[in-house]
Computed example of a mutant assay.
Amino acid sequence: MFRSPVNPIIRLVFAPSLLLFYLVSNGAFMPMLAPIFVVIFLTLMPSRPPLGMLLKLLVALLLISFGVILIGETLIDSPTGYGLFCWSLLFGCFYRSHQNPKDILATLTMLVVIIMAVMNLQFGVSSIGLPWLMFEGFVIALIVTYMSFLLFPGDEKDILPDEEDTEGAQAHIGLIVFKATAMSLVLAALIMSGSSQAILIAITISSMIKIPISRDHRIFSQHRLVTTAIGILFTIPVMLSSNIGMPIWALMGVTVFCSIQLACYAIRRQCKLSIYQLLFTNFIVLISQVLTYQGEDPFSSHFTRLVSIGLAIFIGSLMLNLVQKQPSKSTATA
């Protein structure tokens, strides 16, 4: 409808942010879910998807949200069975991501596993209503994503794609096993520690280590401090505005402005898709926590989130450095 070269940025800035404020104002449970899915869809879909593809994706998401969570509910009384089930799902997600870094189902399944494990094991929340909650988030995100493409058409050309591994996932089974095992251990440690930021830390780490190429791994390692600082600093104006009691419409304006600045910064830095997605996922989660925070000390709470993201970036970078591939002799002599 409104054609402009900046439409892809407008989609990514306005769609998840406005949806988050709408869900928060209506008292939705876990209002960050649908906006996170919108970020994933918009970063992994560079152009408007056909309706047939959306319907197939919706069916797949239905199977994921109900199948994974219901099976997990039956295994909840068996720690070994539950752990192996989560490990196998993470292994499948990392395998698919090595085959195709833009695999939507792998990314969404990984989110489902993280949220399911934290909600079940840490918070003791039953999974009975979780499948409907996840599926509702999927449906809302798909509708918002499709409407954003209709209102602001145009292909995404500013987000650089992640490099694909020409050797395929079969050549790196050991690496994928290591990633799945390390992610499972980190998730278990976060749950046992009772961290209030377990979901945020786990999502950040999984987003960092899912990509297959070592050169992108080095990018994450080199820019981990930048990613940490930017992901949190752009939420500070919203936190300060909320602390002084600004009305919701003013907070929305501050959030949109900060989101635009974050997008422009990412484009100037020529961030790859995984980093771009990581920045906006963290941004949405942090804004959601600012908007729904009911405590008396928002500054210390926000500082805790800063430390949590810093810890996640450090752990993810450490994993990537441990699995960093050495260049082959043929490459070195070329």
Rank of each mutant, 00 (worst) to 15 (best):
T292Q: 04
R215H: 06
M319N: 01
P5N: 03
L278I: 03
H223E: 11
P247N: 13
F178L: 12
H217S: 13
L278Q: 05
F299P: 02
K179C: 01
K272D: 02
L33Q: 07
R224P: 00
S259P: 00
L225R: 06
L19Y: 04
L187F: 05
P327G: 04
R305C: 00
P298S: 06
L320W: 00
D77R: 13
G154V: 03
G194S: 07
S259G: 06
F21H: 08
P327H: 07
G52I: 05
F220G: 06
L200R: 03
A312G: 08
P298Y: 04
V285G: 01
S65M: 02
L121I: 08
S97D: 08
A141W: 04
L251M: 14
S4N: 15
M183Y: 07
F66G: 06
V38R: 06
T292W: 01
L111H: 10
A171P: 01
I9D: 01
A15W: 00
T333V: 13
G137M: 08
D216H: 14
T145M: 14
T235Q: 10
S274A: 15
A34V: 08
V118Y: 04
S330Q: 12
C264G: 07
A189V: 08
V144Y: 04
I143W: 01
L70N: 09
I10F: 10
M53R: 15
A334P: 02
L200Y: 02
S127M: 15
I236Q: 02
S4C: 13
F152W: 14
P247A: 08
K179E: 10
V39L: 05
A141E: 03
L306T: 11
G316A: 04
F178C: 06
A171K: 09
Q270S: 14
L322I: 14
A229W: 10
A169W: 02
Y22Q: 13
F314K: 09
D77S: 15
S97N: 14
R11G: 03
M147Q: 12
V285Q: 12
P16L: 06
M119Q: 15
V139L: 15
S301R: 14
R215Y: 01
H223F: 07
S301T: 13
T333N: 09
V59L: 15
F314M: 13
I260K: 05
E73Y: 05
T235M: 12
I309P: 01
L279D: 00
I275P: 00
V139W: 02
A198W: 03
G295W: 02
T235H: 02
P5M: 09
H302S: 05
Y146D: 13
K325Y: 00
D216K: 12
T204F: 01
P31Q: 06
G27K: 09
A250Q: 14
H223N: 12
V238D: 04
P35N: 08
P131Q: 11
I76D: 02
T74C: 04
N7T: 11
H223P: 00
I219N: 12
R215K: 14
V38Q: 02
S97P: 03
F66A: 11
W87A: 09
V113S: 00
G310N: 00
G137I: 09
L251N: 12
K325H: 07
L62P: 02
L273E: 12
I128L: 15
M192D: 09
V113K: 05
N321P: 00
I284S: 07
